[in-house]
């Protein structure tokens, strides 16, 4: 069993990403969506938490683009996915936990 976690808040404003990463197991996936995608930018105060993560980390490309974040600004190790990739991640894991 493994979980897909979604995070939709900026890590610079709220603790949801930190809390999510602290509760994610190895083999889980963490997907940043909506304002959560700000957490994917390389070289920020959130980067260390993400690079320490045991879970796979993903970011939704449409939300990056909407916010003017070029994909080359995304930290290494984070995979950019589309909504179809979001759906696939949900099918590949046995449950979805939204960190609202």
């Amino acid at each position: 069993m493994s979980i897909l976690h979604t995070v939709n808040k900026s890590p610079f404003q709220k603790d949801d990403l930190k809390s999510c990463l602290a509760h994610a197991n190895e083999g889980d996936a963490v997907l940043m969506i909506e304002d959560g995608v700000y957490g994917a930018i390389a070289g920020t105060a959130a980067s260390q938490d993400i690079s320490n993560a045991k879970a796979g980390v993903y970011v939704l490309g449409a939300d990056l683009a909407a916010r003017g974040i070029a994909q080359d600004k995304v930290a290494e190790g984070i995979s950019v996915v589309g909504y179809d990739g979001f759906v696939d991640l949900a099918t590949e894991h046995s449950a979805v936990n939204s960190w609202l």
Binding site: A90, T91, V96, S98
Partner: peptide, 9 residues
């Protein structure tokens, strides 16, 4: 459902 996906604040 096999999966329940929640969207919120």
């Amino acid at each position: 459902s096999d999966r329940l996906v929640t969207f919120g604040d």
